[in-house]
Design a protein around this nucleic acid. Structure first.
Lengths: 215, 215
DNA sequence: TAGATTGTTAATCGATTAACAATC
DNA sequence: TAGATTGTTAATCGATTAACAATC
């Protein structure tokens, strides 16, 4: 369930604020969801609340972390150490949320031996060795679009079955491999779409002539 | 409709490949969706296809770009020019997809006068002036979580009504303001969740004692 | 017991998709 | 005309949410 990480973050916030117990209503408002939906989601995990009382923040937090699988650290490899790759490698949030960046790989020799966030940048061809030695199951692609499919193929080839793709390209992967995509342009375009509707903009640029049916 | 940008990207790919006409089946496979869904989505925009023939790639591309609102450039301001902010500022995809980064703002004086991707980093207090002068409607937040709400408040205060938030924080904004959130940790956690299920991992770490009901 | 809140049921809503009549 | 493919209908599916019985 894609909302579990959101609940986990909300529970972390409550725990940081020193809250020991919370109702579904309270947690739902922190997480920004409907309380009935929250209760239904949680009921899929088991019966971790107490009727008339609510949820123990620490206990529920652990149960959700266990359900997601972030009670242990997941080794992660990042491929493509350009601006975005470097930013990802430097992102401290990964470490505290159950992930450990074990290798940074890049096809460009000029980037090798560079150190980003304390990790050395290595040749892309080290992929298979790193994945084997470190037991990597999750790969992050931060390369240009043209390279993304090749990187994905190599990742799949050496046993990675979960890929987070930042390259603006649709990846073809075999059954059983999960790909999640973060596409910055698409996020902005969705905002632009809504923004245009708010502003009541009407486009007055010339329309290209229709070609189907003619010629 | 959140899928329009995906179709637009698919159409761009087809146009680059020199395809002049495509069927809903073809376009759907490039975009990675069901063809019936694609036709239904497109039918909301109008009747831009030709029965028995298909869609004119260039014509449909323009129509979708117009619908989204990216036939003109949208001025965008990025706040928080750390690693991620710099990566976003340097991302060439924005320019080609209808967005123009008009200002980079950061509260840290040490970052001022630094130039990232040809744009000078300016004080955060320049926000109101930039938004007014450049007609900015879309703001990007790439600050640490603690600063995000303040930045959002200031943005809303000077008329920005679309926000793309990279900070791992839930933003409270007034009705009418759109916030989209990109959360790197949550994306990875969703992958971890599925990965755990594939691997059949059973967590054997000790469970904290339940506190509700006792004490 | 009385009040509070969960876990679950059932109703509602919207999204997906198969199928096909319209039509190029 | 015959083949192809759209635009749309109607059926299916799943997700959301209000309501409430269970129960602490």
């Amino acid at each position: 369930m894609a909302r579990l990480p959101v609940y986990l973050r909300a529970l972390n916030a409550l725990a940081d604020a020193g809250t020991a117990t919370c109702s579904s209503e309270h947690l739902a408002s922190v997480a920004g969801v409907n309380s009935a939906k929250l209760r239904k989601d949680l009921s899929h995990l088991g019966s971790y609340g107490t009727r008339g009382v609510g949820y123990d923040v620490e206990y529920l937090r652990y149960q959700i972390a266990r359900e997601i699988g972030v009670t242990q650290d997941w080794p992660v490899v990042i491929v493509g150490i350009g601006n975005l790759g470097q930013a990802l490698a430097s992102f401290s949030g990964f470490r505290s949320r159950g992930f450990r960046v074990v290798a940074l790989l890049d096809a460009d020799p000029d980037r090798h031996d560079q150190v980003v966030a304390g990790v050395e940048v290595r040749p892309f061809d080290d992929l298979e060795g790193v994945v084997r030695d470190q037991g990597v199951a999750i790969g992050v692609i931060a390369t240009p679009a043209v390279a993304a499919q090749d990187v994905a193929d190599r990742m799949v080839g050496c046993g990675i079955t979960s890929i987070l793709n930042f390259a603006p390209a649709v990846l073809a992967v075999p059954e059983g491999v999960d790909v999640r995509k973060v596409d910055l342009s698409i996020e902005l375009q969705i905002l632009a779409y809504h923004q245009q509707r708010k502003a009541g903009v009407d486009a007055t640029t010339p329309v290209p002539t229709r070609k189907v049916g003619s010629a």
